[in-house]
Design a protein around this nucleic acid. Structure first.
Ligand SMILES: NC(=O)c1ccc[n+]([C@@H]2O[C@H](COP(=O)([O-])OP(=O)(O)OC[C@H]3O[C@@H](n4cnc5c(N)ncnc54)[C@H](O)[C@@H]3O)[C@@H](O)[C@H]2O)c1
Ligand SMILES: NC(=O)c1ccc[n+]([C@@H]2O[C@H](COP(=O)([O-])OP(=O)(O)OC[C@H]3O[C@@H](n4cnc5c(N)ncnc54)[C@H](O)[C@@H]3O)[C@@H](O)[C@H]2O)c1
Lengths: 205, 205
DNA sequence: AATCTAGCGTGAAATTCGTAACAATGTTAT
DNA sequence: ATAACATTGTTACGAATTTCACGCTAGATT
């Protein structure tokens, strides 16, 4: 049933959710597909159509009650609960990620941090004590963690991904600039800032 | 003329380029749309069609010469030259970005780093001396910088974007979790790791 | 040389996606 | 109470995108 909803629709929901949370912070209580669309540079029809996949969240003539719509989107995306996330790689980027409060604020708790370097294992980043990569499988399995972030050099990313998949992880956010091969039931998202920059230079004269 | 090529095609070229560079590192000299597609999880027809927008880069029966195709894509994307990039925000994330070697390695040189905090202005991150945000317009204009990265708290991202646009910046990579309003001729790309995580939880049972 | 094979480039077909339009319905003003 | 208005949910359509399928060429094989 949920498989009938296009991926591209799902991928826009977090954008809507983020905008709703901001509107809420700014003191708004209701909004409309037009207002949201204007903020996001998306047509109002698109927003209404996307939302209608999941039922009628708005009221004709009035718009959407922000608190309600936000709650509904949270449930659709399964982010009304909290998720535990494993972080692999405690280098420059990994440390910044571990210290970043934005994950926990939005429901993603970093539950453990792994590294392979004996220099780093045992040390701490904030409240996180860095653990050996050797312990990854047992810890992840015990805690039932299904989401992980990879912040190791590109050369080691695939091997880390294999370990994660073996331990039962089903969703990976990969910061290393390399494509990963994983089984079909494992989801991967990529963050590579250079790639984003390269997407813009084409348009510069 | 270039405007006739769909954005979605352009957005895939950097992915191809990255894969080609890796294949090259691994010692390959030629590849095929099938091999590339398998690595990237993209159909071979898609790759051939995307590339054909720019001319025939391959040889029938043989495939693509990696070094040649890479060079062609670099030119199409305008990344055969080097670009200077401004970084605004020298906090946790900004520092990690400034220290990251991957930008310069791939042709994006961080040319200057700005922050508004008197505590930070004058200090250094690696070789970068942090400059006051007040000097941003004059420095950016003098150096003719047209690309910037924003790594300030969400509340200040729009005001920073306005300043950047005023100074002539035409491409912004925004790390703050907020949508920016900019003129039509300014390009914006977003990086928000939480958003990527939220795109995966939907599919977890 | 003739044959075979791999694999590109491409037009046509199929599919997916976005937009326009509107009936239905709630809200506000008078 | 009625009219005027705003905005949703939905359908129908057109645009954009992807996939298919095949002609064609370069190189390998015999
Ligand atoms: N620093 C950034 O701003 C930034 C930005 C974008 C992408 N990246 C990417 O993120 C990755 C990490 O970057 P970084 O700057 O933090 O590098 P880094 O070298 O500072 O850190 C990498 C860490 O990974 C650990 N590691 C290596 N192999 C491992 C393994 N098999 N298992 C567990 N841990 C292992 C190392 O011990 C090290 O601590 C790289 O792929 C980089 O390209 C970094
Ligand atoms: N740390 C991470 O891993 C991470 C990851 C993703 C996104 N982000 C986002 O990146 C942004 C920065 O995060 P951070 O952790 O580095 O925050 P931070 O508070 O450590 O740093 C923010 C910096 O921006 C500076 N600043 C504030 N207003 C400014 C202005 N108007 N002009 C110039 N500089 C200004 C501050 O002085 C500070 O140095 C935030 O929006 C955050 O949500 C951070």
């Amino acid at each position: 049933m949920p498989s009938s909803i296009p991926d591209i629709v799902i991928s826009r929901l977090p954008i809507y959710l983020r905008a709703l949370e901001r509107l809420s912070q700014e003191g708004h209580e209701v909004t409309s597909s037009h207002e949201l669309g204007k903020r996001l540079g998306i047509s109002s029809a698109q927003i209404r159509k996307d939302l209608s996949h999941f039922g009628g969240f708005g009221k004709q003539g009035t718009g959407y009650k922000i608190a309600f719509l936000r709650e509904q989107l949270r449930q659709v995306l399964k982010v009304e609960r909290e998720w535990e996330v494993a972080l692999v790689g405690a280098g420059d980027l990994g440390s910044a990620v571990a210290r970043y409060k934005g994950f926990a604020e939005r429901g993603f708790h970093i539950a453990c941090v792994f590294d392979s370097s004996p220099e780093k294992v045992g040390r701490s980043i904030d409240k996180f004590s860095i653990q050996s990569i050797d312990q990854l499988p047992s810890i992840i399995q015990e805690r039932g963690i299904r989401i992980a972030m990879i912040a190791v050099p590109a050369e080691h990313a695939q091997e880390v991904a294999n370990t994660l998949v073996g331990a039962g992880v089903k969703a990976i956010l990969n910061y290393a600039p390399i494509n990963l091969s994983v089984p079909d039931d494992v989801h991967v998202q990529y963050i590579d800032p250079v790639l984003h920059l390269q997407r813009m230079t084409y348009y510069l004269t």
